[in-house]
Amino acid sequence: MAGYNVSIKALANCGFLDLRGGNDARQACNEYLDIVLPTCANKLVKTANGRIAFCISSNHWLLQVADGNQMDVLQSLERSSADISHSFVDVSDLYARIQLSGPESRDVLAQGVSIDIHPRVFPPGSTARTGIAKTTTQIHYVNESPTYDILVFSSFRQYMLDWLAMAAAKS
């Protein structure tokens, strides 16, 4: 029996690169990706070709690319940052992606997310690294449908799916 009016689905794998480095490495990444990496945590920026860079901290970003592209992008970034202090690591399997969408998504999410996700504070395009229930996630508020993409460490994937299903259920 339906509970909250939401849809929960596991999304296909994406490529993810963990980027760490100082200003020089950031500059090199900016030039290659043709974006300006934010230096404030919980911000994101999108590239023209649909890549997303989540800022984790002032010298730490998570770059989401199309699956299959990650090694090419990694090698290109490595080339662009030769002789610059940095750490670029393929973490494509570190994260699983889950999508929560539907009119009552926020009601479901608010059962486990302690940060303020009201659209006035967390409008579409926002991101935050925060806990959902009892695990760490990266939440991306994709659009006003509303749709949330949730990145979760892959060993917690099933837990997150089960938890969201429980939170949305009429039981």
Partner: peptide, 9 residues
């Protein structure tokens, strides 16, 4: 730089 990658592998 450290990156925890336990779930990657």
């Amino acid at each position: 730089y450290l990156t925890p990658v336990s779930d990657q592998w």
